[in-house]
Design a protein around this nucleic acid. Structure first.
Length: 485
RNA sequence: GGUCUGAUGGCCGAGGGGUUAGGCACAGCUCUGCAAAAGCUGCUACAGCGGUUCGAAUCCGCUUCAGACCUCCA
């Protein structure tokens, strides 16, 4: 099965062919760890987690690198800007690395709850200062950078003369010149669109490292070029990130890689779209973000209730990654209901009684879902396929359709593969150890006897009490199903 | 101002020249002691105006509206 991937470079879907099969190199821009992870962070994490899982399912050996930006970027494009991490540290009277560590932990916890698999390598920018300095040296030697007052800047004009700056985002240097802001304090740069490779640190700047040029810190875009190269090589397959990083971040990465090596590093660029709220991008700058913890606990005035991590994951997967996804309580609640119905059917499979012959063809569940995902990660269609089968599973449970023992096992296996392995969804409300389920079964048997004696008072009391404890009873003709709420 | 993207039923969201996406909500029916669950049925949309075509939600043009990027941002 061929995986089709939308390459931002060509703006078309292309057949994915790895550079060195069966190996695939995947690099994704991770978070800057200076704040609690929010819903916006969940989108790329879940998207590229799905990609990671799909590539593995296709038989590739994937090295997935997702960085942690702990060096911090400048708050403003000026020489006296304060490091984001440093600012936070000053406010909280903590070491900058303490802040970075705290939010790194928070990020990992949240991702784990969302069922996001840990990447193969999670390199930290602060641990790769040497590699970044080496990369700057190479760019300087190649003649695409210049020193200025202890800082080093990338020479966009020089680069643009030999290569094309702006190919990813579709911008031209001319038009950038006319709109780029002229900021005070950027006098060290020759052109407004030149970007920093190394910044000299002001005396009060805490996060600093020695370099041939000054005590300072690496530029904003350097770490991804340096770390992707270190772990994935001069050329690698896929680079992903949010659409908002396309310019300038990814454009600069391309320039840095090309300037230092003479060729591009990345073969396929992928960009996930944003999560919006009231039609506007959810993000730090607008201050309209909802943290994942707030989502999980419901503690935010925008939230009508708490939503479970898996509901969030399902919500994200129900939209295509290149579409904006609009947040609302209605949309989250709909996702929650849908997810619960999906998982209820999934649990139901084990309770279906096999029959002599099958009235349904279960052979294509997995392949249909794989086909959808191979079409540029079309998870909404894969989920639609699953819902077709939810209906079938319920009919099987009602006896309206039948399956043989073999088909039932195949159905169960395929469903598990798609739901758990590919989509990364897992049941949350299980917690039913043998003792718990045994007790519930026993109580339901007592209730069944009461029902047979038409003792509705007792039977309703049992049902109500169980309901109060979170056990939902679903009566059938002969007995009852139950699930934990 | 420049570059780009989008506008789908009550809501969320796929698709993308002729054929039911799917989910949620809603209504009716079946089942049922009641309720819930489940099943069946119904509601059937593609911003507006032109054009191409046997046929357009889908292609082209214009208009309106919205958003993203051009500054750190997932």
């Amino acid at each position: 099965m061929i995986f089709k991937i939308f390459n931002t470079l060509s703006r078309t879907k292309e057949d994915f062919t790895p550079l060195a099969p069966p190996h695939v190199g995947l690099y994704v821009c991770g978070p800057t760890v200076y704040g609690d992870p929010h819903l916006g962070h969940a989108r790329p994490a879940v998207t590229y987690d799905l990609l990671f899982r799909l590539l593995m399912a296709l038989g590739y050996k994937v090295r997935y690198v997702r960085n942690i930006t702990d060096v911090g970027h400048l708050e403003h494009d000026s020489d006296d800007g304060e490091d984001k991490l440093q600012k936070k540290a000053r406010l909280e009277k903590l070491e900058p690395m303490e802040v970075a560590q705290y939010y790194t932990n928070r990020y990992r916890e949240a991702m784990n709850m969302l069922g996001v698999l840990p990447p193969s390598i999670e390199p930290q920018a602060s641990g790769h200062i040497i590699e970044q300095i080496e990369l700057i040296k190479e760019i300087l030697e190649a003649g695409y950078a210049y020193q200025s007052n202890g800082s080093v800047y990338f020479d966009v004009d020089r680069y643009n003369a030999d290569h094309c700056y702006g190919k990813l985002s579709g911008r031209s240097v001319e038009e950038m010149l006319s709109v780029t802001r002229q900021l005070d304090g950027s006098g060290d740069k020759r052109k407004s669109y030149d970007f920093a490779l190394w910044k000299k640190a002001s005396p009060e700047h805490i996060m600093r490292w020695p370099s041939p040029w000054s005590d300072g810190f690496p530029g904003w875009h350097l770490e991804c070029s340096a770390m992707s190269r270190k772990y994935l090589g001069d050329r690698f397959d896929i680079h992903g990130g949010g659409m908002d990083l396309m310019f300038p971040h990814h454009e600069c990465e391309i320039a840095q890689s090309t300037a230092s090596m003479g060729h591009e590093a990345v073969r396929y660029w992928m960009h996930n779209n944003m999560i919006t709220i009231d039609g506007r991008k959810m993000g730090k700058s607008l201050g309209n973000f909802i943290t994942l913890e707030e989502l999980f606990t419901g503690r935010n005035t925008l939230l009508e209730k708490a939503y479970s991590p898996m509901t969030i994951r399902f919500f994200i997967l129900q939209a295509h990654y290149r579409s904006t996804l609009d947040f609302s309580n209605e949309a989250l609640s709909a996702a929650e209901k849908g997810f619960e119905r999906l998982m209820a059917a999934f649990d139901m499979i084990d309770k279906i009684k096999p029959a002599e012959k099958s009235t349904v063809d279960v052979s294509a569940i997995k392949s249909q879902c794989m086909e959808a995902l191979c079409d540029d990660l079309n998870s909404p269609v894969a989920i639609a396929v699953l819902f077709e089968w939810v209906k079938v599973i319920n009919r099987l449970n009602d006896g309206a359709d039948t399956v043989t023992d073999g088909d039932l096992r195949s159905l169960s296996e395929q469903f598990r593969f798609v739901v758990c392995d590919l989509l990364g969804l897992s049941a949350e409300k299980r917690g039913d150890g043998e003792l718990t389920s045994g007790l519930i079964e026993m109580i339901l048997q007592v209730r069944q006897q009461a029902k047979e004696q038409k003792n509705w008072a007792v039977s309703d009391k049992i049902r109500d009490e169980l309901s109060r404890l979170g056990v939902v009873v679903k009566d059938r003709k002969d007995g009852a199903d139950w699930e934990l709420k």
